[in-house]
Measured scan of single mutants.
Amino acid sequence: SEEKKKAKERLERLGASSELARELLDRANGNAEKAERLLRKLL
């Protein structure tokens, strides 16, 4: 979806690899905010 694509791009801008961004979104069930929080914990 367009929303998921935007979320993935945002995670990548924050420093996630394409693969990591995809994994985070999967774990967050597509929830962009939750995926971002997970990423911030990792960085």
Rank of each mutant, 00 (worst) to 15 (best):
5 K>Q: 13
29 N>V: 04
6 K>Y: 09
39 L>A: 00
15 G>I: 03
13 R>K: 12
19 E>L: 08
37 R>T: 10
19 E>Q: 12
21 A>G: 02
24 L>V: 05
42 L>I: 12
31 N>C: 01
9 E>R: 08
13 R>N: 08
34 K>N: 08
41 K>L: 14
10 R>T: 06
16 A>V: 06
41 K>Y: 15
30 G>L: 04
25 L>N: 00
1 S>R: 11
7 A>Q: 06
36 E>F: 06
1 S>E: 14
39 L>E: 00
20 L>R: 03
27 R>W: 15
41 K>V: 13
40 R>K: 12
43 L>M: 10
8 K>F: 15
23 E>L: 14
26 D>F: 12
27 R>Q: 12
13 R>F: 11
2 E>H: 12
31 N>R: 03
34 K>F: 14
2 E>M: 11
11 L>F: 02
17 S>I: 03
38 L>C: 10
14 L>P: 01
13 R>P: 01
27 R>E: 08
2 E>G: 09
14 L>A: 05
34 K>C: 10
27 R>G: 04
28 A>Y: 11
27 R>V: 09
6 K>V: 09
34 K>E: 15
17 S>G: 06
3 E>L: 11
41 K>G: 08
18 S>F: 06
1 S>K: 10
17 S>D: 08
13 R>Y: 10
22 R>A: 15
29 N>L: 09
33 E>N: 09
19 E>I: 07
12 E>G: 03
43 L>K: 06
12 E>M: 15
42 L>S: 04
39 L>C: 00
35 A>T: 00
32 A>C: 08
7 A>V: 08
17 S>L: 05
36 E>N: 02
28 A>M: 09
20 L>A: 02
13 R>H: 10
20 L>G: 01
13 R>W: 11
20 L>N: 01
11 L>R: 01
21 A>F: 04
27 R>I: 13
11 L>N: 01
17 S>A: 04
32 A>Q: 08
31 N>E: 04
17 S>R: 02
27 R>Y: 11
34 K>Q: 14
3 E>R: 10
9 E>H: 07
26 D>L: 14
16 A>C: 00
43 L>G: 04
2 E>I: 11
20 L>S: 02
3 E>W: 13
36 E>R: 04
29 N>W: 07
40 R>V: 10
39 L>P: 00
24 L>I: 06
40 R>H: 13
27 R>D: 04
34 K>S: 08
29 N>S: 09
6 K>D: 11
25 L>R: 02
12 E>R: 07
43 L>P: 02
38 L>V: 06
37 R>G: 09
31 N>L: 06
34 K>V: 15
26 D>E: 14
5 K>N: 13
26 D>I: 13
26 D>Q: 13
15 G>V: 02
29 N>P: 01
25 L>C: 03
15 G>P: 01
32 A>N: 03
2 E>P: 09
19 E>D: 12
43 L>S: 05
40 R>T: 07
14 L>S: 02
10 R>E: 05
22 R>M: 15
18 S>N: 08
35 A>G: 01
29 N>G: 14
5 K>A: 11
22 R>L: 15
38 L>S: 04
14 L>G: 02
39 L>M: 04
22 R>Q: 15
30 G>F: 06
2 E>V: 10
17 S>H: 05
7 A>D: 08
34 K>D: 13
12 E>I: 14
1 S>D: 14
31 N>G: 02
20 L>V: 06
13 R>A: 14
5 K>R: 13
30 G>A: 02
18 S>A: 14
21 A>Y: 04
13 R>G: 07
30 G>P: 00
12 E>Q: 09
40 R>F: 13
22 R>Y: 10
2 E>C: 08
18 S>E: 13
39 L>W: 07
29 N>A: 08
26 D>N: 10
6 K>H: 11
34 K>I: 15
5 K>F: 10
26 D>K: 13
30 G>M: 05
26 D>P: 00
9 E>C: 01
20 L>K: 03
30 G>V: 02
4 K>P: 08
8 K>W: 15
19 E>Y: 06
22 R>K: 12
24 L>W: 04
23 E>N: 07
8 K>M: 15
9 E>N: 08
22 R>W: 13
6 K>M: 10
40 R>G: 05
17 S>M: 03
43 L>N: 05
11 L>Q: 01
43 L>W: 09
33 E>G: 07
29 N>Y: 07
1 S>N: 12
18 S>K: 11
33 E>Q: 12
17 S>W: 08
21 A>C: 04
30 G>D: 06
25 L>G: 00
7 A>Y: 07
5 K>H: 09
43 L>Q: 09
25 L>K: 00
26 D>V: 11
1 S>H: 12
21 A>M: 05
5 K>T: 10
40 R>I: 14
12 E>F: 04
21 A>H: 00
26 D>R: 14
29 N>R: 10
22 R>H: 11
6 K>F: 09
41 K>W: 14
16 A>W: 03
36 E>S: 04
34 K>G: 07
36 E>V: 11
23 E>D: 12
30 G>S: 03
9 E>K: 09
32 A>K: 04
8 K>V: 15
4 K>D: 14
12 E>N: 03
28 A>Q: 02
23 E>T: 09
42 L>Y: 12
28 A>V: 10
9 E>M: 07
21 A>T: 03
41 K>R: 13
8 K>I: 15
4 K>S: 14
6 K>R: 11
7 A>F: 09
9 E>G: 06
37 R>V: 11
37 R>A: 14
20 L>C: 12
39 L>H: 01
19 E>W: 12
27 R>M: 13
27 R>P: 00
32 A>V: 15
2 E>W: 10
5 K>I: 13
4 K>N: 14
41 K>D: 14
25 L>Q: 01
16 A>D: 02
38 L>H: 04
15 G>T: 02
9 E>F: 04
25 L>P: 00
24 L>Q: 01
23 E>H: 11
11 L>P: 01
20 L>F: 06
4 K>E: 14
35 A>P: 00
25 L>M: 07
32 A>L: 15
33 E>P: 06
16 A>P: 00
29 N>M: 10
3 E>C: 08
